[in-house]
């Protein structure tokens, strides 16, 4: 999966689709979503292609990491952070595995 497409698809998930949850913060969710995509998408691709790690482990850590980012950098609402994290990480992982298989 080329880098551009994987970052773009992660940005659509974690930036554009997250934006309605935090629409009062204007452009900030988009920027955070882009940074999350930039950090996580190449990292996951490297893990998937170079190692034989069980992807439940990165899934769990990314779920916690995304929830922490949404809670600490966007809005101090833990339930909203967890919902966003679960929802888009589930979609993101299915998408990632399908695109890389």
């Amino acid at each position: 999966m080329p880098l551009f497409y994987i970052i773009l698809s992660f940005f659509i998930l974690k930036g554009l689709l997250t934006w309605p949850f935090y629409y009062k913060l204007n452009w900030k969710p988009l920027a955070i979503g882009f940074l999350l995509a930039l950090a996580e998408a190449p990292f996951l691709t490297l893990l998937y292609q170079d190692t034989e790690i069980n992807f439940w482990i990165p899934f769990f850590f990314l779920f916690v990491f995304d929830a922490a980012v949404c809670f600490l950098l966007l809005q101090k609402l833990w339930w909203k952070a967890i919902i966003v994290s679960i929802l888009f990480n589930c979609i993101g992982f299915v998408l990632f595995i399908l695109l890389n298989s």
């Binding site: 880098l3 940074l35 930039l38 490297l46």
Partner: peptide, 24 residues
Amino acid sequence: RNRLIFIACSAVGFMLLIGLFVRN
């Protein structure tokens, strides 16, 4: 080179997020 670009992108993303954490 591809691998290096992937590592660099990921590192930049994580560094910027850490920077935002610290700033916050």
